[in-house]
Design a protein around this nucleic acid. Structure first.
Length: 362
DNA sequence: CTTTATGATTACGG
DNA sequence: CCGTAATCATAAAG
């Protein structure tokens, strides 16, 4: 006990790393009751040294006594303040981080793919578009589409359960830590501010875990999507009626088989392509593909298409004559060749055009 | 199975 | 972005 004061005085032992502080204390305690304070400190240190000898009950009692000390709140605040100014200022600079761009990207993607968004909102635009492309013509797209939807919603469900799990774990852990810190704040200087900071650290940690989840979910969606897109490549033939309608248009506009935007839409509608309004662009490529293929293949081998051409020409011709017989010329299916139209098939048009056929039939 | 038909995709030019 | 031409990949026919 009486050893302690000497310990304090001797530089290089008790305060080896802080000669200045020791000096300061020495100066500060140079008053009349300086010796008395040293005595107190000595007492305290002694108590600390022998703390392991105390029984648990004794320790609790002391703790309680300490807590009830009238100076305790003030001292607590001071200690908190000091701590705030030292420890926290060291790493306090890196607070206020901006939202992680990577995380935002993931969030946006999940939202766009319909994983993170509102429940069952018809899925993403991409899904709808892909659905239309898969087989808008027949009535067969449902199989693959629903497969895709099922898989997507599976991913979605996993994602949400996991997310919820994380959320719950995070909350549990947070409250646990908060309780712990609150409890500890009875014996060591922990300000509410510090607790708050700790909580935010925990949240950051958990959100980084969440990011991993989001990452892997994104990956899964990408894989699913690429597989679906591959599946989309699988050819689905147009049904007979659709082909007939398209052929009809093609052969009755043989001299200029380039349907306008409106014409394409009209054709799509007539072919039974379900135009869900927001996928007209897909429909457009559908019809365009058909005409593109038809044009190139017709041109490449006119002979092979001769029969078909004649057939359709004859058919539309019959339609035209029957219509004109009723006195209405207006909706004759074609008005081939006015000046300035593209001459795709050069001079090789030895076959019957619609007009030829029509006049023949007249 | 091989061949053919056909929808989709890609490369390129305007 | 539109079209052509070549090519791919698969459905359907043989």
């Amino acid at each position: 006990m009486d050893e302690q004061p000497r310990l304090m005085h001797s530089h290089g032992v008790g305060m080896a790393g802080h000669p200045g502080l020791a000096q300061h204390m020495q100066d500060g305690t140079a008053g009349t009751d300086g010796e008395g304070r040293k005595q107190d400190i000595g007492d305290i240190l002694q108590q600390i040294m022998t703390i392991t000898d105390q029984s648990l009950d004794e320790a609790q009692a002391r703790k309680h006594a300490l807590n009830c000390h009238r100076m305790k709140p003030a001292l607590f605040n001071v200690l908190c303040e000091i701590k705030e100014k030292t420890v926290l200022s060291i790493r306090g600079a890196q607070e206020e981080e901006p939202p992680d761009p990577q995380l935002m990207r993931l969030d946006n993607m999940l939202l766009a793919e319909g994983v993170a968004g509102p429940e069952k909102g018809g899925g993403s635009a991409a899904a709808a578009a892909a659905a239309a492309a898969t087989g808008g013509v027949g009535a067969d797209n449902s199989a693959e589409h629903s497969d895709y939807r099922a898989k997507l919603s599976q991913i979605r469900q996993i994602y949400h359960t996991e997310l919820e799990k994380y959320e719950q774990a995070c909350n549990e852990f947070t409250t646990h830590v908060m309780n712990l810190l609150r409890e500890q704040s009875r014996t060591r200087p922990i300000s509410p501010k510090e607790i708050e900071r700790m909580v935010s650290i925990i949240h950051r940690k958990f959100s980084s875990i969440q990011m991993q989840l989001k990452q892997s979910t994104c990956e899964a969606v990408m894989i699913l999507r690429s597989r679906f897109l591959d599946a989309r490549r699988k050819r689905r033939n147009f049904n007979k009626q659709a082909t007939e309608i398209l052929n009809e248009y093609f052969y009755s506009h043989l001299s200029n088989p380039y349907p306008s935007e409106e014409a394409k839409e009209e054709l799509a509608k007539k072919c039974g392509i379900t135009v869900s309004q927001d996928v007209t662009v897909i429909i457009h490529t559908l019809v365009s593909n058909w005409f593109g293929n038809k044009r190139i293949r017709y041109k490449k081998n006119i002979g092979k298409f001769q029969e078909e051409a004649n057939m359709y020409a004859a058919r539309t011709a019959v339609n035209a004559t029957s219509v004109s017989a009723h006195g209405s010329q207006a909706n004759s299916p074609s008005t081939p060749n006015s000046a300035g139209e593209r001459q795709i098939f050069e001079g090789k048009r030895s076959l019957l055009s619609y007009r030829d056929c029509a006049t023949v039939l007249d």
